[in-house]
Protein backbone atom coordinates (compact mmCIF):
# COMPACT_ATOMS: atom_id res chain seq x y z
CA UNK A 1 0.00 0.00 0.00
CA UNK A 2 2.78 2.31 0.92
CA UNK A 3 4.52 1.64 -2.37
CA UNK A 4 1.38 2.63 -4.18
CA UNK A 5 1.40 6.07 -2.63
CA UNK A 6 5.01 6.69 -3.44
CA UNK A 7 5.14 5.69 -7.11
CA UNK A 8 1.61 5.34 -8.40
CA UNK A 9 2.41 6.53 -11.89
CA UNK A 10 5.21 4.11 -12.58
CA UNK A 11 3.22 1.14 -11.35
CA UNK A 12 0.21 2.06 -13.38
CA UNK A 13 2.34 2.55 -16.43
CA UNK A 14 4.00 -0.80 -15.95
CA UNK A 15 0.71 -2.61 -15.55
CA UNK A 16 -0.66 -0.90 -18.61
CA UNK A 17 2.44 -1.76 -20.59
CA UNK A 18 2.36 -5.44 -19.62
CA UNK A 19 -1.30 -5.66 -20.57
CA UNK A 20 -0.61 -3.98 -23.86
CA UNK A 21 2.35 -6.23 -24.64
CA UNK A 22 0.29 -9.31 -23.91
CA UNK A 23 -2.22 -8.06 -26.46
CA UNK A 24 0.55 -7.35 -28.93
CA UNK A 25 2.08 -10.78 -28.43
CA UNK A 26 -1.26 -12.54 -28.64
CA UNK A 27 -2.09 -10.92 -31.94
CA UNK A 28 1.43 -11.33 -33.23
CA UNK A 29 1.44 -15.04 -32.34
CA UNK A 30 -1.67 -15.48 -34.41
CA UNK A 31 -0.26 -13.42 -37.28
CA UNK A 32 3.15 -15.08 -37.30
CA UNK A 33 1.59 -18.55 -37.23
CA UNK A 34 -0.13 -17.64 -40.48
CA UNK A 35 3.03 -16.66 -42.31
CA UNK A 36 6.04 -18.30 -40.71
CA UNK A 37 6.84 -21.89 -41.51
CA UNK A 38 9.23 -22.22 -38.61
CA UNK A 39 6.55 -21.29 -36.08
CA UNK A 40 4.06 -23.55 -37.81
CA UNK A 41 6.42 -26.50 -37.58
CA UNK A 42 6.97 -25.91 -33.89
CA UNK A 43 3.27 -25.49 -33.25
CA UNK A 44 2.26 -28.58 -35.20
CA UNK A 45 3.65 -30.79 -32.43
CA UNK A 46 1.09 -29.33 -30.03
CA UNK A 47 -2.28 -31.06 -29.74
CA UNK A 48 -5.21 -29.40 -31.53
CA UNK A 49 -7.15 -27.23 -29.12
CA UNK A 50 -4.05 -26.83 -26.92
CA UNK A 51 -4.47 -23.74 -24.76
CA UNK A 52 -1.42 -21.73 -23.81
CA UNK A 53 -1.46 -19.01 -21.21
CA UNK A 54 1.05 -16.45 -20.06
CA UNK A 55 0.08 -14.64 -16.91
CA UNK A 56 1.26 -12.49 -14.05
CA UNK A 57 0.86 -13.94 -10.58
CA UNK A 58 -1.28 -13.96 -8.55
CA UNK A 59 -4.11 -13.03 -10.83
CA UNK A 60 -2.97 -10.25 -13.08
CA UNK A 61 -2.93 -9.72 -16.82
CA UNK A 62 -2.86 -12.73 -19.05
CA UNK A 63 -2.76 -13.75 -22.66
CA UNK A 64 -4.32 -16.90 -24.00
CA UNK A 65 -3.75 -18.51 -27.38
CA UNK A 66 -5.05 -21.75 -28.77
CA UNK A 67 -3.41 -24.07 -31.24
CA UNK A 68 -6.27 -24.65 -33.64
CA UNK A 69 -4.41 -27.20 -35.77
CA UNK A 70 -1.94 -27.19 -38.68
CA UNK A 71 0.42 -24.99 -36.71
CA UNK A 72 -1.99 -22.06 -36.43
CA UNK A 73 -2.57 -20.07 -33.28
CA UNK A 74 -5.75 -18.27 -32.35
CA UNK A 75 -5.62 -15.40 -29.86
CA UNK A 76 -8.34 -15.55 -27.20
CA UNK A 77 -7.61 -12.27 -25.43
CA UNK A 78 -7.45 -12.68 -21.66
CA UNK A 79 -10.12 -15.30 -21.09
CA UNK A 80 -9.81 -19.01 -21.71
CA UNK A 81 -12.75 -21.02 -23.03
CA UNK A 82 -11.68 -23.95 -20.77
CA UNK A 83 -8.86 -24.81 -18.37
CA UNK A 84 -5.49 -24.12 -20.01
CA UNK A 85 -2.99 -26.88 -20.82
CA UNK A 86 0.16 -24.90 -20.27
CA UNK A 87 0.67 -21.83 -18.18
CA UNK A 88 3.79 -19.73 -17.94
CA UNK A 89 3.49 -17.56 -14.86
CA UNK A 90 5.55 -14.54 -13.96
CA UNK A 91 6.10 -14.31 -10.23
CA UNK A 92 5.60 -10.55 -10.22
CA UNK A 93 4.59 -7.89 -12.67
CA UNK A 94 8.10 -6.44 -12.42
CA UNK A 95 9.45 -9.67 -13.93
CA UNK A 96 6.85 -9.68 -16.67
CA UNK A 97 7.91 -6.14 -17.41
CA UNK A 98 11.58 -7.07 -17.64
CA UNK A 99 10.80 -9.76 -20.20
CA UNK A 100 8.10 -7.98 -22.13
CA UNK A 101 10.17 -4.83 -22.44
CA UNK A 102 12.99 -7.03 -23.76
CA UNK A 103 15.42 -6.18 -20.99
CA UNK A 104 15.64 -9.85 -20.06
CA UNK A 105 15.62 -12.79 -22.44
CA UNK A 106 12.83 -15.31 -21.97
CA UNK A 107 15.36 -18.09 -21.42
CA UNK A 108 17.29 -15.96 -18.93
CA UNK A 109 14.05 -15.20 -17.11
CA UNK A 110 13.50 -18.93 -16.79
CA UNK A 111 17.06 -19.39 -15.63
CA UNK A 112 16.63 -16.56 -13.12
CA UNK A 113 13.51 -18.10 -11.59
CA UNK A 114 11.37 -15.19 -12.73
CA UNK A 115 8.63 -17.46 -13.90
CA UNK A 116 7.08 -20.85 -13.34
CA UNK A 117 5.77 -23.43 -15.73
CA UNK A 118 2.55 -25.22 -14.99
CA UNK A 119 2.06 -28.02 -17.47
CA UNK A 120 4.17 -30.25 -19.68
CA UNK A 121 7.77 -29.00 -19.74
CA UNK A 122 8.33 -30.16 -23.31
CA UNK A 123 5.47 -27.92 -24.45
CA UNK A 124 6.97 -25.09 -22.44
CA UNK A 125 10.30 -25.58 -24.22
CA UNK A 126 8.49 -25.50 -27.55
CA UNK A 127 6.51 -22.38 -26.68
CA UNK A 128 9.71 -20.68 -25.55
CA UNK A 129 11.16 -21.30 -29.01
CA UNK A 130 7.99 -19.94 -30.58
CA UNK A 131 8.20 -16.85 -28.37
CA UNK A 132 11.87 -16.38 -29.30
CA UNK A 133 10.95 -16.53 -32.94
CA UNK A 134 8.09 -14.14 -32.33
CA UNK A 135 10.31 -11.69 -30.50
CA UNK A 136 12.70 -11.64 -33.40
CA UNK A 137 9.77 -10.90 -35.66
CA UNK A 138 8.13 -8.07 -33.83
CA UNK A 139 11.33 -6.32 -32.84
CA UNK A 140 14.12 -4.70 -34.79
CA UNK A 141 17.24 -6.83 -34.91
CA UNK A 142 19.17 -4.81 -32.34
CA UNK A 143 16.59 -5.24 -29.60
CA UNK A 144 15.63 -8.75 -30.60
CA UNK A 145 19.20 -9.86 -30.03
CA UNK A 146 18.76 -8.84 -26.44
CA UNK A 147 15.47 -10.69 -26.18
CA UNK A 148 16.48 -14.05 -27.64
CA UNK A 149 19.57 -16.20 -27.25
CA UNK A 150 20.35 -16.22 -30.95
CA UNK A 151 18.90 -14.14 -33.71
CA UNK A 152 17.73 -16.45 -36.49
CA UNK A 153 19.67 -16.14 -39.72
CA UNK A 154 16.74 -17.09 -41.91
CA UNK A 155 14.34 -14.40 -40.81
CA UNK A 156 12.44 -12.49 -43.45
CA UNK A 157 10.07 -9.95 -42.02
CA UNK A 158 6.65 -9.69 -43.56
CA UNK A 159 5.95 -6.01 -44.24
CA UNK A 160 2.79 -5.94 -42.20
CA UNK A 161 4.61 -7.05 -39.11
CA UNK A 162 7.47 -4.63 -39.50
CA UNK A 163 5.22 -1.62 -39.47
CA UNK A 164 3.26 -2.99 -36.55
CA UNK A 165 6.42 -3.64 -34.63
CA UNK A 166 7.63 -0.09 -35.11
CA UNK A 167 4.52 1.31 -33.47
CA UNK A 168 4.72 -1.03 -30.52
CA UNK A 169 8.40 -0.46 -30.14
CA UNK A 170 7.79 3.24 -29.73
CA UNK A 171 5.41 2.47 -26.93
CA UNK A 172 7.95 0.12 -25.45
CA UNK A 173 10.90 2.49 -25.37
CA UNK A 174 8.74 5.20 -23.86
CA UNK A 175 7.74 2.94 -21.05
CA UNK A 176 11.20 1.68 -20.37
CA UNK A 177 12.33 5.25 -19.95
CA UNK A 178 9.44 6.15 -17.67
CA UNK A 179 9.95 3.12 -15.52
CA UNK A 180 13.67 3.64 -15.21
CA UNK A 181 13.44 7.31 -14.35
Amino acid sequence: MLAKRIQPMVFQARRYYVELMFQVMGRALQAVSEVDENVQNEARALPDGFLFEMMVMPDGSRLIVEHTGQGRFHYHGNTAPRPVDLSIQFKHIAHAFLVLSFQEKTSVAFANDRMLVDGDISYAVRMTRVLNRLESFILPKLIAQRAVKEYPADLRLPKKLISAARIYLKVATNFVETARA
Binding site: F110, A111, I121, S122, A124, V125, R126, T128, K149, E150
Partner: peptide, 13 residues
Protein backbone atom coordinates in the same frame (compact mmCIF):
# COMPACT_ATOMS: atom_id res chain seq x y z
CA UNK B 1 16.22 -33.76 -27.07
CA UNK B 2 14.79 -30.55 -28.46
CA UNK B 3 11.66 -31.07 -26.35
CA UNK B 4 13.59 -31.70 -23.15
CA UNK B 5 13.34 -29.08 -20.44
CA UNK B 6 17.11 -28.99 -19.86
CA UNK B 7 17.71 -27.55 -23.30
CA UNK B 8 16.20 -24.29 -22.13
CA UNK B 9 19.21 -23.59 -19.93
CA UNK B 10 21.89 -24.49 -22.44
CA UNK B 11 23.98 -21.35 -22.98
CA UNK B 12 23.76 -21.65 -26.75
CA UNK B 13 20.46 -21.90 -28.59
Amino acid sequence: ALDDGSIMFNPKE
